[in-house]
Design a protein around this nucleic acid. Sequence first.
DNA 1: GTCTATAAGACGATAGAC
DNA 2: GTCTATCGTCTTATAGAC
Lengths: 217, 217
Amino acid sequence: MSPDAEPPPRRLSRAEAKARTRERLLDAAAQVFARRGFGGASVDEIAETAGYSTGALYSNFGGKDELFLELLASRTGLRQDAAAAVVGSRDKTVEQVQAELNRILVEAADGDSDIALLQAELWLYAIRRPELLEQLASRFRGNRDVLSGLLAERAQARGQAEDLPFDDLATVVLALFQGLVQLRRTDPELVRPELYGTALSWMFRGINEASSRPDEG
Amino acid sequence: MSPDAEPPPRRLSRAEAKARTRERLLDAAAQVFARRGFGGASVDEIAETAGYSTGALYSNFGGKDELFLELLASRTGLRQDAAAAVVGSRDKTVEQVQAELNRILVEAADGDSDIALLQAELWLYAIRRPELLEQLASRFRGNRDVLSGLLAERAQARGQAEDLPFDDLATVVLALFQGLVQLRRTDPELVRPELYGTALSWMFRGINEASSRPDEG
DNA sequence: GTCTATAAGACGATAGAC
DNA sequence: GTCTATCGTCTTATAGAC
């Protein structure tokens, strides 16, 4: 072994340490923003929650706004892998897909991660800043497109009508999710755990009927 | 005319003047809270928007929280009269009802009153205060019950199945409204003006099919 | 890179004049 | 009842030690 052959460092490199700090600060920020709201959260509490001081926070982020911006960029997306696993899988029965969708909704509403609150905060934040609105809109359109594609694939694989308005369907699937999560977060009694899957099955049955027998009912 | 017979006062009585001030302050508060968010709004700006000073505001309300509480109490309800006019009227065709629902959704999303933002703020505010959560939940349940009753009446009047899960249907109708408003507020292109009525017609067709032919599809 | 200490300002709320 | 003036607190952001 030559003297200058270095073993892989056991301690984190400077870049790794900084990246870890950033990650911890972002996690803490998500927590505190969800708990207090954007206006009610203080950078002090965020830094303290992450285990750092405000100075460390300001050396990693431009400030409160930039911190929230990073969250907006990293936590408003559809988990494409998860969506594909749930909706895109061809060998899942309708009942299986329904059950998984219900589980996801209940987790989002009941889970203690308060993801629903953070999403609402991010939405309000972006809506009020014209320069961010298009970014959020683009992200939502992306979510819709991914889901729309998955629905089209699934319909094709199952030999169903291929000329359905998949974009509209995907939009409704996403909107209903958001609405039901907020209602269930307010009062679990309002939204039975099975309601999301049930409502979607009504809708898909209805649209299939509408496309095959447009003049009935 | 006896000397002490007073004509009806042309100027407002003290009670009336105070009530008018309260109303103006509440309207201004709704505006500013919607524009800035609860945390971002200052009582100074609210008072100034209403045309008063902060002293006047504090003589009419306990403070910022109490002001928001009054909004929560007065602006989270379903307009029952409007709901009855739209859904409850027996002589409206399905197409007419759809068109009116679409109009309401587009107004809520596109209107410059920013009612959607205020609703989101009120929801977040109540969710974070355990003592208010039950109040909001009760209000939502009331909305659902009213709508559920109207749907049941309408189904009966039209000779449709009377054993449908009207509570579930009403919940979905409300949730979908909320979700679509937020999506359309983000990007009007995501939600066509006709989508709400269309999606509901899919769903009602589907549930009628499901209740009359449970084992098909 | 992170910490401590602090500057500069905004905020909610109150007191007293009118 | 409303206004003006002000108090004390909490906030974001920065500067300099380590």
